[in-house]
Design a protein around this nucleic acid. Structure first.
Length: 158
DNA sequence: GCCAACGTTGGC
DNA sequence: GCCAACGTTGGC
C-alpha cells in the first residue's frame, strides 16, 4: 500500500523550483531521530510527498514529489565541511539516512492558514500544536483532500 | 534513569 | 525578534 508524506524545506534554502530544475535530489540533512526512522524504515519507492515550504509568509505546500530511491546513508553526515556533519556518523556505521525524490506536479500554493481553516483537514499531523517534524506522515484522507483542493481528481493514478 | 539546562524549529 | 514546544545533553 502506497503511503503519503510531507517534507519541509525552507523556502530560501531549497525551494520546489530547485527540485524541478535539478530533476531529482537526495534529501540530506535530516538530523532528528523520529524523522530519520520514518525515512529509513517506512518510506518506499513510489510513495508520494507533499513538498512544504517553511520559514516564509505564509508557509505553504508547493508541490507533490515522489520517492524514487529508498533509504541509504546520508553522506553529508561524515563530511567535515558540511553543515550537517556529525562526528558520530561514519561510512562504516552511518547514523543518518536519506531518500531520493523527484518532482511530480507543482500545485497552486496552499498556505498554512488555508490548511488550518479547512475542517476536512482537522487532525492532520502538520496542523497539530507543536508539530515540528521535518518529515512526517500524511494519512491518505488528508492527502486526498489536498489533491481535491488542487484540482487533482484522481490522485491514485499519480 | 532522572531532570535541568541548553539548543533548535518554525509559526507568528 | 519572540517564544512555545519540543529534542538532546550530561551531571548526578
Amino acid at each position: 500500500m502506497r503511503k503519503y508524506w510531507l517534507m519541509k524545506s525552507e523556502l530560501d534554502v531549497y525551494p520546489w523550483e530547485a527540485l524541478v530544475s535539478e530533476g531529482r535530489t537526495h534529501w540530506d540533512g535530516v538530523r532528528n531521530y523520529q524523522a530519520r526512522n520514518m525515512m529509513r524504515d517506512k518510506m518506499k519507492k513510489g510513495d508520494l510527498v507533499l513538498f512544504y515550504h517553511s520559514n516564509c509568509k505564509p508557509p505553504h505546500i508547493a508541490g507533490i514529489a515522489k520517492i524514487v530511491r529508498e533509504s541509504y546513508a546520508d553522506f553529508t553526515s561524515w563530511d567535515v565541511k558540511s553543515k550537517y556533519f556529525d562526528p558520530k556518523s561514519t561510512p562504516e556505521n552511518p547514523r543518518w539516512f536519506m531518500v531520493d525524490i523527484e518532482p511530480l506536479i507543482k500545485i497552486d500554493n496552499i498556505g498554512l492558514p488555508d490548511l488550518r481553516s479547512n475542517p476536512l483537514l482537522e487532525g492532520m499531523p502538520l496542523l497539530k500544536k507543536g508539530s515540528r517534524l521535518s518529515v512526517q506522515p500524511v494519512p491518505e484522507e488528508y492527502f486526498s483532500v489536498i489533491c481535491t483542493i488542487s484540482g487533482i481528481n484522481n490522485f491514485e493514478t499519480l
